[in-house]
Design a binder for these strands. Structure first.
Lengths: 200, 200
DNA sequence: ACATATAATAAACACTGTTTAGTAAAAGAA
DNA sequence: TTCTTTTACTAAACAGTGTTTATTATATGT
C-alpha cells in the first residue's frame, strides 16, 4: 500500500502549504484581508482546490489557531529555566505581555478574534497547558511562602484576566491615547501592587 | 432661511433613520452581517443614498459606538444613587459586568471590535466619563478609609483591566467550557479577594 | 488496453463595500 | 411664470468576497 501512503503524505504536504500561505498572509495583512483566492494565488492553485483540503475558511482559522497556541505555549514555557518559583511567576507575566505585544496577530487569533470557534475542543479555554503552567506556578509560590488562605484558581484568573484585559485593549487600540511610556509604568506599578498584596 | 433649516433637520432625520436601522441589524445579527444594502433595504432607499449621509461604513460604526458609550455611561451612572462610596464601587463592578453580559454587542462595539477607530477622539479611551466615575469613586473610598499609599489610577486600571479581561473572554467565547455557575462564583471570589486586599 | 477513481479547475452564484453617471424634482433668479 | 441651477436620489457597474458545481485531465486498478 505504498501509493495510498504517499497520497496521504502528499495531502499533508498540501495542507501545510495552504496553512503556511494563510499564516504568512494573516501575519502581514491581518485576518480580514486573507481571502481564499489570495491563499490559492500564493500556492499557485485554484481557489476551489483549497476546498479539497479544508472544509471552509473557519477550518483554516482553527488550524492556524492551533499553530498560534503552540508558539504561545513554547514561549511561556521559557519560564521553566528559572528555578526560583517567585521569579518564574514574574517571568510568566513578562513573557505573556511580551508575546502579546510582539505577536499581536497571534494573540488576536487565540483570544480576541470572533471567528467561529470549536466549542468541543479545549483550546478555547486558553489552552490548558498554558493555564496549568500559570496556576501550577502560583500554587508552588503559595506553598513555598506558606500562604494558605488564598484560592489558587481565583488568583490565576485574576492575573490572567488583568493581563488579557490590558493586552486586548492595547491590541484593539482602546488605549491609543495613553503614551507607551505611561502604560508600561502603569503595568509595572500594578504588578508590584499585586505582588505585595498576594505573594508576600 | 426656513428652507435651509428644514433641509438640515431633514438630513438629521435621515441620519438617525440610517443609524436606527444599522443598530437594529447590528444587535440582531452582529456587525459582520450588517451590509450597506441591508441598511438601505430597511429604510427603503438605495445603497448609494446611504453614502450621501455617511462617508463610509466605518463612519456608521463610529456613530453607533457613540450611541453605545452613552448607554454604557448612563447604566454605570446608576451607581450614583448609592451614597456609601464603598458600596457604590461594588455597584460599579456589578453594573459593568451586567452591562457586558446583557449587551454583548454594545460591549463588543465599544471595547473589542477591530473596526477602524478615531484616534483623534477620546472615546477610544474607555470614555473618560466612565473611567473618571470609576477612579473618582476609588479615590473617595481611599479617602474615607484613610488609605494613602495606593495609587488610584493603577487601582482603577487593575479593576477595569480585570473586568474587561473576563468580559471580553466570555463574549468572545474563550471560556465557553467553564460552566456559568462556576464562572460567576469565580468572579465573586476574586471580587472579595480584591476587596480584602485593597479596600480594607 | 480499458474502466474507474482522483485531483484540479473554470465558471458561476450570491454576496460584499463603494463609485459613477444620469435623472427627476425642488429651489432660486429673471 | 419661465428658466437655470442645485439638490436628492438611484441604476448600474467595479472590484472584491466565500462557496459550489460541472467538467476535464491524469493517475490508479483491473
Amino acid at each position: 500500500m505504498g501509493i495510498a501512503e504517499r497520497k496521504e503524505s502528499d495531502k499533508e504536504v498540501m495542507r501545510k502549504k495552504i496553512l503556511d500561505s494563510a499564516m504568512r498572509l494573516f501575519l502581514s495583512e491581518g485576518y480580514n484581508k486573507v481571502s481564499i483566492r489570495k491563499i490559492a494565488d500564493a500556492i499557485e492553485y485554484s481557489p476551489a482546490t483549497v476546498y479539497l483540503y479544508f472544509k471552509d475558511k473557519t477550518a483554516i482559522f482553527n488550524a492556524l489557531q492551533k499553530v498560534a497556541f503552540d508558539k504561545f505555549y513554547n514561549t511561556l514555557a521559557g519560564c521553566l529555566k528559572i528555578k526560583d518559583v517567585k521569579k518564574r511567576l514574574d517571568e510568566i507575566g513578562e513573557l505573556y505581555m511580551k508575546f502579546a505585544m510582539e505577536n499581536p496577530e497571534y494573540y488576536d487569533l487565540m483570544f480576541i478574534m470572533s471567528a467561529p470557534i470549536d466549542r468541543e475542543k479545549a483550546t478555547c479555554f486558553m489552552d490548558d497547558r498554558a493555564f496549568n503552567l500559570l496556576s501550577g506556578t502560583i500554587e508552588e509560590v503559595f506553598k513555598k511562602k506558606g500562604i494558605k488562605n488564598i484560592d489558587v484558581e481565583a488568583t490565576a484568573f485574576l492575573l490572567w484576566g488583568f493581563s488579557h484585559g490590558l493586552a486586548s485593549l492595547i491590541i484593539r487600540k482602546r488605549l491609543a491615547l495613553i503614551p507607551d511610556e505611561h502604560l508600561k509604568g502603569l503595568f509595572q506599578k500594578i504588578s508590584k501592587m499585586l505582588d505585595k498584596k498576594f505573594f508576600q
